[in-house]
Design a protein around this nucleic acid. Structure first.
Lengths: 233, 233
DNA sequence: TCAAAAGTGTTCAGCGTACACCCATGT
DNA sequence: ACATGGGTGTACGCTGAACACTTTTGA
């Protein structure tokens, strides 16, 4: 008797993946949502999602579906939480593993998105979403906020080269509050993960602002060293 | 056509729940593991787990399985992470939602545990576990450490009434490092979630140490107020 | 009287926070 | 010359961290 037979008597479930996809443009944090394609609730606004296939890891499913929608590989993607109420989808029992993704909207492929009637919404203009997707979005936002406090993650939402003002505006958008320019710069620079470039961005001021980029090396050094949460009372 | 029919063509999966169960005794953080009952790898050390049933939420499955093993209801239980590699279980494709639980070992029912050949191990004496269970335990420990820094969660592992020395020993066990007594007390008491009782515990010293209990009211007030993570740069 | 754990305060350094002015440049 | 965003430094208060001695009491 093959091992798999031992498991035969147990219930099997549809397992979906739903992605909370964040972007940043026009100084606003945005969310990418699609029109649902499945018959049930077809056409309603919904997070981008799909079902986990037979021989596919859940992470791979999330990446696959994200790539279908955005045309992007190598996106920052992190598992958020698994939603398992048996009646969360009123059409069938579906367990959903939620992920959140941070993407650089400049690189986003609009054509791919159009196939799913995808649309970006500012966080305070998100339409009603199907099932428990709104709850997922709220949890993702909380997680993103927490994450950006203790780890320099926000970069994923920006183009490769960005000004400190852009970065600050992003943080303000994520946290929904204004920040002091001097303190912000002091803090971010003291983290020592930014590399100052010679070039200036002149698109938003006459004087021009220096461009920076994220220094992956420094970042890794930081992470591999002592963790950020050193416990001492 | 009923909604559920729309979903028929998608793959279905076995969904398991595995619990990392922490306890505290003899000044050590401990983990409860069982001997595996399913044919495949039967008898190996394994986290307590089981399959999610047809009309059961994943959370309920976790609670059900935990109660079967420990005889305890109302345990602190939190979803940890979902493990979805398609080959993580070499017998069949099983997606596992991991939870971690904190239990007061005084209340633990040994009889229930014996039915599963359950055993408590100190964290540095955990035997080899089946599949990816070791990874789950490591993640749970990290989460517990982080959690105890920012939220007074540790109480769940202690009897209802405890001394500050006991609490400190617990924190030392969780974090694997010694803490300064004065700083620890200052910090914990300033959180304002402990209630000092009139009674003393004389079991561990001639002088006796005052007993405290966790004050749920104060705790809730704290949590409902401003969150712990106020972001300001 | 002594052994063993309980209990208690102060000092210092570093970090977060508040706050206001000059700089560079294109029009 | 002026309007617009870019860039910079300091002072204060709080919190975390290091550190040692007295108290109580049963044996």
């Amino acid at each position: 008797m093959s091992p798999s037979l031992y498991y035969q008597s147990f219930a099997r479930h549809l397992v979906a993946v739903d992605s909370i996809i964040f972007g940043f443009s026009e100084n606003q944090l945005k969310l990418l949502v699609t029109r649902r394609e499945l018959e049930h609730h077809r056409g309603q606004w919904s997070l981008m999602g799909g079902f986990v296939e037979e021989n596919e890891s859940v992470d791979d499913a999330a990446r696959r579906i994200l790539e279908e929608l955005t045309g992007l590989k190598n996106i920052y993607l992190e598992q958020l939480y698994t939603y398992g109420d048996f009646d969360r989808d009123d059409g069938a029992r579906v367990i959903s593993v939620a992920y959140y993704a941070l993407i650089n909207m400049d690189a986003y492929n609009e054509e791919s998105g159009n196939r799913y009637q995808a649309k970006w919404f500012a966080m305070d203009e998100i339409p009603q979403l199907v099932f428990d997707h709104k709850i997922m979005v709220e949890k993702a936002l909380k997680r993103l906020r927490r994450k950006t406090i203790i780890q320099p993650v926000g970069f994923e939402l920006l183009p490769e080269r960005f000004t400190l003002t852009q970065l600050q505006t992003l943080y303000e958008a994520i946290h929904g509050q204004e920040l002091d320019k001097r303190n912000f710069r002091k803090k971010i620079l003291s983290m020592n993960v930014l590399q100052k470039l010679d070039e200036k961005d002149k698109s938003s001021s006459r004087r021009g602002a220096f461009l920076f980029c994220f220094d992956k090396q420094k970042y890794n050094a930081l992470m591999n060293g002592n963790g950020i949460f050193d416990f001492k009372y």
